[in-house]
Amino acid sequence: MADITQIFKGTQIALPSFAAIKLNASTWVIDEKLDENRVDGVHKPFSDPEQQPSNWTAKYLCHDHDFPHTEAFMRVYCQGPDEGTEFLLPEVRAQQANPHFEKWEATARRKFRQNGCESVPLLLGCGQSVQGDHGPVPGGYITYLVLKKVPGQILTPDIFWSMERPKRDLLRQKFRAAYEEMSSCGWAPVGEHITKIIWDQASASLWITGFRGSYPVDGKWTDDVLTYYNLINPPASDVWKTLDEWEW
Results as ranks from 00 to 15, higher is better:
Y144W: 11
S129C: 05
P157L: 00
D133C: 01
G152E: 05
R172S: 08
H63G: 07
P121G: 02
P216R: 15
S162R: 13
P49I: 08
V130D: 02
K9Y: 03
S205D: 05
Q131I: 00
Y179P: 01
M182W: 13
T222K: 08
H63I: 07
P16C: 07
F67M: 10
W248N: 13
A94K: 15
I13D: 04
Y77M: 00
T222A: 01
K148F: 02
G139Y: 09
R212F: 03
P166S: 06
I4C: 01
C126Y: 08
A108M: 09
K111D: 11
S203R: 14
L145A: 08
V217Y: 10
D3T: 10
V146W: 06
I208M: 14
F46A: 10
R109G: 00
P16S: 07
Q52L: 14
N98R: 12
F67H: 14
I194A: 04
Q12D: 11
T107P: 00
D224I: 04
Q6N: 11
W28Q: 06
M182T: 15
E164W: 02
D169W: 10
Y60G: 02
A2K: 14
E118G: 01
L145W: 06
C78S: 11
I4M: 02
S54T: 13
T57D: 00
G210W: 09
G80M: 04
H134M: 06
K174I: 05
V120I: 12
L147A: 06
V146K: 09
P157V: 03
Q79S: 01
N98A: 03
S205F: 00
E102M: 14
G41V: 05
A97P: 06
T209I: 15
T11I: 07
A204W: 07
Y60V: 04
L15S: 06
D3F: 12
P216E: 13
C78P: 02
K149S: 08
S129E: 15
E102F: 00
K44E: 13
V42K: 12
E50S: 12
Q114K: 14
M74V: 06
I198Y: 03
G213S: 10
N55P: 00
I208P: 07
A97V: 01
F46M: 12
G210Q: 00
G210K: 08
S119A: 15
A14G: 09
T156S: 14
M74Y: 09
Y179M: 12
S183R: 08
G219V: 12
D244P: 04
A72P: 11
H43L: 13
R212N: 13
K167Q: 14
S205Q: 13
F67I: 12
G139T: 09
I30A: 05
G10L: 05
I197K: 10
R113D: 02
R168N: 05
V225G: 04
Y228T: 02
E181L: 07
